[in-house]
Amino acid sequence: MTELLHEISVPPTRVSGRRWVFLRRVVATPGGSAGLAVLLLLVGSALFADLVAPYSPIKMGVGKRFLPPSLAFPMGTDEFGRDVFSRILFGSRLTLMIGAIAVGISMSAGLVIGLVAAYRGGWIEKVLMRTTDMLLSFTETLIALACVAVLGPSLANAMIAVGIAGIPLYARTCHSAALVERSKPYFEASVAAGAGHCRLIVLHLLPNILPTMIVVATLGISSAILAAAALSFLGLGAQPPQPEWGAMLSGARDYLNRGPWLMAVPGLAIAVTVLGFNLLGDAVRTALDPREAGE
């Protein structure tokens, strides 16, 4: 009888290569593969800009101003005779850097605030979360503008400003995710086992909220890039002659009649990048959804 009953319980199954399964699930959706393609393209051009770019991104070319797209200049030249294609390629470095650094700042500060608030509770949680709510009621761009106004216009400051502006969103998401995990029995079991604060936060809470935060971050990169481009467009971010896409867009505004490609190219680059990261974020969210995970 006992053997019979033992047989009823399901034997554990081994799942191998969870990382690859995850990647395969991201690529499985058309949006995911498109997003991943954009990301790879961006990384590729950032890495190999020196090799691929036919010209220097900042060297001016006398007598080559406003050349329309041709074989020699695939995306034409700008008002200083610089090759737009080369500038776009080198600009991808800045774009990736902006995305990574701004999101890095928002994410790390948001994680700390959210985790501390959820873990400690009490008045600390109230102060942190009400402040977050207050900041959330302003649009991110407004906060970023205020930060740049204080820090002064430069690309580095723009990244910091966009990063700071993103903190409330990350803190809020992290807080609610951590609250959910905190109330689960495994967390209580660790408390009962005598685990200390560090262990509970770093080993139990953090790894369990990370999937949620990764989704937020992937989606957040696109809005960070957009916000930084907006700052550069306003002249508060990248300074000439840095080939930043937002700044290129801004510079091209005055020459709309003489060189319409000057606006179209960086505008398209920004749009495609933002779209790519959004698609990727959606795919990552779908792939991480436990309901989709199945066996």
Binding site: K184, P185, Y186, F187, A189, S190, L203, H204, P207, N208
Partner: peptide
Amino acid sequence: YASLDPRF
């Protein structure tokens, strides 16, 4: 299902 840390 909830009483073991899924990442341990």
